[in-house]
Simulated assay, not measured.
Amino acid sequence: MGPWLNHSTLGDFILLGIFSHNQTDPVLFSAILVVFAVAVAGNMLLLFLIYSDAQLHTPMYFFLSHLSLMDFALICTIVPKMADNFIHDRKSISFIGCGLQIGFFVTLVGSEGLLLGLMAYDRYVAINRPLRYHVLMSQRVCFQIVGSSWAFGTLDGLIQVVAAMTFPYCGSREVDHFFCEVLALSKLACADTSLFDTLLFSCCVFMLLFPFSIIVASYAKILRAVINMNSTQARQKALATCSSHLAAVSLFYGTAMFIYLRPKRYHAPGHDKVVSLFYTILTPMLNPLIYSLRNREVMRALRKRLSHWVTACQK
Results as ranks from 00 to 15, higher is better:
1 M>V: 04
1 M>N: 07
2 G>D: 05
5 L>C: 10
5 L>A: 13
6 N>C: 09
6 N>L: 14
9 T>S: 15
9 T>Q: 13
11 G>S: 13
16 L>W: 06
17 G>H: 12
17 G>I: 11
18 I>H: 04
20 S>Y: 01
21 H>L: 15
22 N>Q: 10
36 F>A: 07
39 A>R: 03
49 L>I: 09
63 F>G: 06
63 F>E: 01
75 I>G: 04
76 C>M: 12
78 I>Q: 02
90 R>A: 02
100 L>C: 12
100 L>D: 01
101 Q>L: 02
103 G>R: 01
108 L>K: 03
109 V>N: 03
112 E>F: 08
114 L>G: 02
122 D>H: 09
125 V>E: 00
128 N>E: 01
129 R>Q: 09
131 L>N: 00
131 L>S: 02
136 L>M: 13
139 Q>T: 11
141 V>E: 03
143 F>V: 11
143 F>I: 09
145 I>F: 02
146 V>C: 12
146 V>L: 14
159 I>C: 12
164 A>H: 02
167 F>I: 00
170 C>D: 13
174 E>D: 13
175 V>H: 00
181 E>L: 08
182 V>M: 10
183 L>C: 03
190 C>T: 10
192 D>I: 15
193 T>W: 01
202 S>R: 08
204 C>R: 08
205 V>W: 14
211 P>K: 01
217 A>R: 05
218 S>W: 10
221 K>H: 12
225 A>H: 08
232 T>R: 14
236 Q>R: 15
247 A>F: 09
247 A>N: 08
251 L>Y: 15
252 F>W: 07
253 Y>H: 00
256 A>G: 00
261 L>G: 03
261 L>D: 07
269 P>G: 12
271 H>E: 11
274 V>H: 04
277 L>I: 01
287 N>I: 14
288 P>F: 11
290 I>T: 09
294 R>Y: 07
300 R>Y: 03
302 L>F: 15
307 S>M: 15
309 W>F: 09
313 C>T: 11
